[in-house]
């Protein structure tokens, strides 16, 4: 299997600020890739480009071999990309089950409801199918958003800070379910500031700094990379490595 996502020299500027600066990388099918980097290093902008929410100023994105730059986010979903957000963006005026049915509006088939219920049960939310999403806790909203992203059977799920601000046990549940789906072949790109969680989960880590990809490899290699340490500390490795 080839890569699900290939990014070549992505550039995105906001006014005079270059948020993503010639970032190139690829995500193999079934990969579990963690993305780290200091605040403002371009991680979220990169995710936004990878699912079509933002158009890059230049560069090429291929999803499952198809060139996608300039296409709307709905085309990215059809090509097999789905995502979650930094702050959960569940739709609060509809129930958990109804939230699950939003992504499959344009999809053919009829047993979406059954599939949605299976996925809710997958993260222990089966008793909350008829609960308005506004009444779910923050952790439950994160879980709902996670399984909602799986409704379209994506080949890659982009997750922005799935572990931020949730209870350790929810974090653990999320981690296990990500691993489970990953074993079944779904690729994940996970942006997180929780580096220990991420390095434990992902066999591959990509580090961004000032919009560039500064390191890409196994966790131990990346976290000890001088460029990564510099990105986080603002200077070279003078003493202890940060991790």
């Amino acid at each position: 299997m080839g890569p699900v996502i290939e990014a070549e020299k992505l550039v995105k500027r906001f006014g005079g600020m270059t948020a993503v600066d010639e970032a190139s990388f690829s995500v193999e099918a079934g990969a579990l890739l963690g993305v780290i980097g200091p605040n403002g290093s371009g991680k979220t902008t990169t995710l936004n480009i990878l699912n079509g929410a933002i158009r890059p100023d230049s560069g090429v994105i291929r999803v499952n071999g198809k060139e996608m730059q300039g296409k709307p986010s709905t085309a990215f979903v059809e090509a097999g990309v789905s995502r979650t957000f930094q702050n959960p963006r569940v739709f609060t005026t509809i129930t958990a089950l109804e939230n699950m049915l939003v992504p499959v509006l344009h999809s053919k088939g009829s047993n979406w409801r059954e599939k949605a219920l299976d996925l809710l049960a997958f993260v222990g939310l089966e008793d909350h199918r008829d609960t308005p999403a506004s009444e779910l806790s923050g952790g439950q909203q994160k879980l709902l958003e996670f399984v909602r992203a799986l409704m379209t059977d994506p080949s890659v799920v982009l997750m922005d800070e799935p572990f931020a601000g949730v209870h350790p046990s929810v974090k653990e549940l999320m981690r296990q379910r990500i691993l489970e789906r990953n074993r079944e072949g779904t690729a994940f790109v996970i942006v997180s500031h929780e580096i220990p969680d991420l390095t434990r989960l992902c066999p591959q880590i990509l580090c961004m700094s000032s919009g560039r990809v500064v390191a890409y490899g196994p966790p131990a290699e990346v976290t000890s990379d001088p460029l990564v340490i510099e990105a986080y500390l603002g200077h070279g490795p003078s003493g202890k490595a940060a991790s």
Binding site: N51, G52, A53, P72, S73, T74, V77, E78, S82, R83, F85, R89, F91, T92, T93, I94, E98, N99, L101, V102, P103, V104, L105, H106, R148, A149, T152
Partner: peptide, 17 residues
């Protein structure tokens, strides 16, 4: 449901497909 989703958070609905 999609209409309600649009009402609440249109960019999110779009990103979800």
């Amino acid at each position: 449901y999609a209409l309600r989703a649009i009402s609440e958070d249109e960019p999110a609905a779009q990103v979800l497909g």
